[in-house]
Simulated assay, not measured.
Amino acid sequence: MRVPDNLLFSIFQDQEARIKKVLSEKTLDIATGRRVRALSDDPSTTYNVIQLKSEIAQLSQHSQNRLFADTNLTYADFTLGKMEDTIKRLYAEIIRIKNSATISSDQLIAMAEGFNQSIRQLLDRVNEKLGQNYIFGGNALTVKPFDENTLNYQAGAGDFKVWISENSKVSVFLEGGRVFKTNLYVSRATFNSPTDSFSSAGSITIKIGANTYTINYGGAGEPQSIQELANYINSNLGDGIQAFVSTNPNGTYSLALSTKDLSADMEFVSITGDFSTGFDNPNILQAIKRVKDKLENGIYPDEFDLFSINRSYDIVAMRRSEVGYVLNVVKNLQPTQENLDLVLKKQKSDLEDADIPESMMEYTRYRMAYEALMRIVADQKDLTILRYI
């Protein structure tokens, strides 16, 4: 039965359009390397690709933050290590002075210069910058942390933190006021002699962690001098508090207190009597300067000086271990982020990119189908598409 020309032409048109459309798509797949080139091509796949791109961008930001944290914390660790070395030398010097009974006042004054140089070195360390930011300036990135004259902390009131993962952020610029804070306290009230009697009875209430201590003095049956008060504290509260009678740079005496626990802090709840003027809480630089000032005045260092230098070293070592722990977490995150990046990019590629070998095979197959269609028409009517145009 002979096929009508108009029906043959209609069939030919439909098949040719379908084959040409597929050939065009496969040609674009091969040329661009993309299977999805517009939202309208495949809305569902495009949405998934957009989501993956967002996750990849977020991961990239977290990876940059991780590298940023790694760099800053590594430098902070290095700086704290150098400070440890300096304070260790000062401690050894104090030990040498205390073990020698023949050092004169003039020699003590001369030794003060070495302490002064060490303080300048420490000051340079705590005011170190990485780029334009101070590593111990906390969240006030460009404010110099410690005043060169008073040695007071004057920068940010908290650490500067960055997100290194979706659920985790770390400190990269540390608050120097916290890092170099000591749990050493020296009474502002001074006495001409450790055995001078108190002029006004009172009490000191101190909170350390969950424990509260109330120390009465000056009344009947209570300590009557700072020497007796220090002895009483050490005998009765020695599990939480250490007390010293310390010579001040001007030759007077003060009550010095510290927590037994290195990581604990001391809060003064209330103070009455002779000590109502309160207690100073020197930072590490100021604690070392106190010793330097005494040497400059030819005053021999006491047990509290030795303790304060040792405590300063221990605090710096503790802060360094804290930085080291965070740094270890940051470094261990690197392979996890790199693997996740590969997985996300592979998922995106699987959705978005064309399979070039498969597209080439499809292109060849449809090209052959198109040529076969042309031959069928030519065999049926001895015509080509050009005869119909």
Rank of each mutant, 00 (worst) to 15 (best):
M1V: 14
V3E: 10
L7G: 10
L7R: 13
L8I: 01
Q15K: 10
R18F: 09
R18C: 05
S24H: 11
E25P: 07
I30E: 00
T32N: 09
T32S: 15
R34D: 15
R35K: 15
R37S: 11
Y47P: 02
V49A: 08
Q51V: 11
S54G: 08
S60W: 00
Q61L: 13
Q61H: 11
S63T: 13
D70M: 05
Y75T: 11
A76G: 05
L80Y: 06
R89P: 00
L90M: 14
Y91D: 03
A92K: 12
R96N: 15
S100L: 06
A101M: 06
Q107C: 08
G114A: 12
N116T: 12
Q117A: 10
R120Y: 11
L123W: 07
K129P: 04
G131S: 13
G131L: 09
N139F: 14
N139I: 02
L141Q: 06
P145C: 08
N152E: 11
Q154R: 14
G156Y: 02
F160P: 06
S168F: 13
E175C: 12
G176M: 02
T182W: 02
N183E: 06
L184F: 03
T190R: 12
F191L: 08
P194H: 04
T195C: 07
S197H: 06
F198R: 03
F198V: 03
S199R: 09
A201K: 02
S203I: 00
K207V: 01
G209S: 03
A210W: 03
T214N: 04
G218R: 04
A220H: 04
G221E: 10
E222Q: 15
I226M: 00
A230W: 02
A230H: 03
Y232S: 02
N236Q: 08
I241N: 05
A243N: 07
A243H: 03
F244N: 07
G251F: 10
Y253Q: 05
L255M: 02
A256E: 06
T259D: 00
D261W: 06
L262E: 04
D265L: 04
E267N: 10
I271R: 09
T272A: 07
G278A: 11
D280N: 14
N281T: 08
I284V: 14
L285K: 01
L285G: 01
L285E: 02
A287E: 03
A287G: 01
A287T: 01
I288T: 02
I288L: 10
R290G: 08
L295Q: 12
N297I: 07
I299N: 07
D305S: 12
L306F: 14
S308Q: 04
S308Y: 06
I309T: 06
I309S: 00
N310I: 00
M318L: 15
M318W: 11
S321K: 13
G324A: 01
Y325E: 12
N328A: 13
V329P: 05
T336K: 07
E338S: 10
N339D: 12
N339Q: 13
L340E: 11
D341Y: 05
L342M: 10
K346N: 14
K348H: 13
R365Y: 06
R365V: 09
R367G: 15
A372C: 12
A372N: 13
M374Y: 00
M374E: 08
R375P: 03
I376L: 12
Q380A: 10
Y388N: 01
